[in-house]
């Protein structure tokens, strides 16, 4: 009977993990800004030199504002993704907000690899594919180049949509974010998500070290996200009026001081 109990428990847990995988994958697909079919139909057209120069000749303020708008649009979809993850809405609202403030941009960076052309080193932005030089007017070449490096390296792993979905959920449900009220509950959710990710990687017969590679990506994502905040702070010092009057309110809530 002891064996029965053990096997029932492990079966229940497998069923639970399968259920979580399905929910997270479905949520990811439902809340991706561009669906699989749309991606296939996309012309993957790059900006021509003249267009690149137009972006480069924009003022720093205008280019920052444009990027803030695009990031905010992407983040709204990430909020919807979070809401549909099993257990997220059961967290207290403080913790929901803490997780989104800390993790939503990181999920946008993960999702970026769906809209990234590795060969051209270009990302879908404002209607066409843009290389790092399109973003020169922002005045943060180092951060842009790191974001592109990250996208290149994530793309090289060729993650499936299921794997991307669970990796995104794993990042979003990080239990070590500051100011969480109920760390334990978030930790439980994250552990379940990690099991689901492991399970999917096994099912997809992925190489042994992939989970370790993804864990390393978590620290890269944190560094990108905090560097974005630093760049924004520096920008605000000079252009506080532009930020106050022209930046999307949600962007300010997420990244403002």
């Amino acid at each position: 009977s002891n064996e029965d109990t053990v096997s029932t428990a492990s079966m229940a847990s497998t069923a639970e993990i399968d259920h979580l995988s399905q929910i997270v994958s479905r949520s990811h697909l439902e809340t991706c800004q561009y669906l699989g079919e749309e991606l296939q139909q996309m012309s993957w057209q790059s900006f021509v030199q003249e267009e690149v120069e137009t972006y480069q000749s924009k003022t720093q303020e205008v280019m920052w504002q444009l990027c803030a708008v695009k990031i905010t649009e992407a983040i709204q979809y990430v909020v919807e993704f979070a809401k549909r993850i099993d257990g997220f809405m059961e967290l207290c609202q403080n913790d929901q907000i803490v997780l989104l403030k800390a993790g939503s941009l990181e999920v946008v960076f993960i999702r970026m690899c769906r809209l990234f052309d590795s060969q051209k080193n270009a990302v879908y932005f404002d209607g066409k594919f843009a290389g790092p030089d399109v973003f020169r007017a922002l005045g943060c070449d180092d951060l842009i180049s790191s974001v592109f490096d990250f996208a290149q390296s994530l793309c090289s792993l060729h993650l499936t949509e299921d794997e991307l979905a669970l990796f995104s959920a794993f990042v979003l449900l990080s239990a070590d974010r500051s100011w969480l009220q109920d760390k334990l509950q978030v930790e439980k959710l994250q552990q379940k998500t990690q099991l689901a990710l492991q399970h999917v990687l096994q099912k997809n017969q992925r190489e042994e070290g992939l989970l370790t590679k993804l864990r390393y990506k978590v620290s890269v994502l944190r560094s990108l996200s905090s560097r974005h905040t630093e760049k924004l702070s520096a920008f605000r010092v000079v252009h506080s009026d532009i930020v106050r009057t022209h930046f999307p309110p949600l962007y300010k809530e997420l990244f403002g001081a």
Binding site: V79, E80, K83, I97, L250, E253
Partner: peptide
């Protein structure tokens, strides 16, 4: 709450502002 007004709204809305 005032500080995260929009996030609160997005989290509480059953219908999202995003046209999914």
């Amino acid at each position: 709450k005032e500080k995260h007004k929009i996030l609160h709204q997005l989290l509480q809305n059953s219908t999202s502002p995003v046209d999914l």
